[in-house]
Amino acid sequence: MCTNTSNATCKVEILHGVAYSPLFFLGLLVNAAALCAFLAKRDCWTDTYIYMFNLAIADMALVLFLPFRIYDAFFCLPKTTLCTFLINIHFTNMYARILTTTVISVQRYLVIRFPLQARSWRKKKETAFGVCLVIWVFLVTTCAVFRKDNYPDKLWRCYERCKNHRLQKEFIVILLLLGFFIPLMIIVFCTSRIICILSKAENKSEEKKSIIGLVTANMIVFIVCYTPIHTGFLVNYFYIPPSHWQSLYIPAHVYFHVSEWIAATNCCFDSISYYFLLKQS
């Protein structure tokens, strides 16, 4: 167990595995229930259902591969092409969740800001399916283009890259800009506008209050879950020279593990949105 790491690093890895274990079981439970609920209502799907179903698929895909992460924390998986595949799966599904959440936020804003036009648009389901397809094609293509960045010779452990092998500049720009900062700005804008529009409405029904609470909660969860890991990407790339890495390794190692775990917890928080959607249908 952890034979190729120091005692301090080994303890971090064990805690890492312990933290992911309940996340796997809870995530499996809530996302399996969500998928079953969506499939049971497949005859009355709307564009919102399609977006939420896509989000549930991304959540479930991440959860199903967590056992590999847990096993690696305790027993250290060998550095093979399987590790490259697992890293790509983990982060592809994370960014699928980020981009789908962004699209859902835009869709909610457009429905509330332009209600008449939203009702008259007849190809909403086709558009939703096309948008989800574009998201997956973009992410898979990005992984294929930059696949060498996570080859076994660039890895220190199965799920961790060597710190002296930095990601390509173009790749880090895509991760930070398209994968986080732009979605964050869009979500903050859409959420603030939704709150402003519904707060000014003369008829403040319970449904409108619940929508305000839901979009606010979704924005807060998004910021809390995804800001730490992308802050880590930014700091690691621009401010930590490889020659100084050894003295900073343990705290940085802990930070990245914690931030990745926080990002992964979003697969359970999404169940809040599923609940309100199914409740209102």
Rank of each mutant, 00 (worst) to 15 (best):
W45G: 05
D47V: 00
T48N: 05
T48A: 08
Y49L: 01
I50T: 03
I50M: 04
Y51W: 10
Y51M: 10
Y51C: 08
Y51N: 08
M52L: 14
F53I: 01
F53Q: 02
N54K: 03
N54S: 15
A56P: 05
A56S: 14
I57E: 08
A58V: 00
A58G: 06
A58Y: 09
D59R: 09
M60C: 04
V63A: 04
V63G: 02
L64K: 05
L66V: 11
R69P: 00
I70Q: 06
Y71H: 12
D72N: 13
A73S: 15
F75L: 11
F75E: 09
L77M: 11
L77D: 05
L77N: 03
P78H: 03
K79P: 06
T80W: 02
T81Q: 12
L82P: 05
C83F: 01
F85M: 11
F85I: 10
L86S: 06
I87Q: 11
I87M: 10
I87N: 13
H90W: 07
F91Q: 12
T92D: 13
N93R: 06
N93H: 12
Y95N: 14
A96Q: 10
R97W: 00
R97L: 15
R97K: 15
R97Q: 15
I98C: 07
T102F: 02
V103R: 04
V103E: 06
I104N: 09
I104Q: 08
V106S: 03
R108A: 06
Y109A: 01
Y109W: 09
V111S: 12
I112K: 03
I112H: 03
I112M: 02
R113T: 01
P115W: 02
Q117L: 14
Q117R: 15
S120I: 00
R122I: 00
K125E: 14
E126L: 14
E126R: 14
E126P: 00
T127M: 13
A128M: 01
A128D: 02
A128H: 02
G130W: 08
L133A: 14
L133G: 13
L133R: 07
V134S: 12
W136M: 10
V137R: 02
V137D: 06
L139Y: 07
V140R: 04
T142F: 13
T142L: 10
A144V: 11
A144L: 14
V145Y: 15
R147Y: 13
K148T: 11
K148H: 14
D149P: 06
Y151V: 01
L155C: 05
L155V: 01
W156V: 00
R157P: 01
C158H: 01
R161C: 01
C162H: 12
N164H: 13
R166G: 06
R166M: 09
L167K: 09
K169Y: 07
K169N: 12
K169G: 08
E170F: 00
E170N: 10
I172E: 10
L175R: 13
L176Y: 05
L177Y: 07
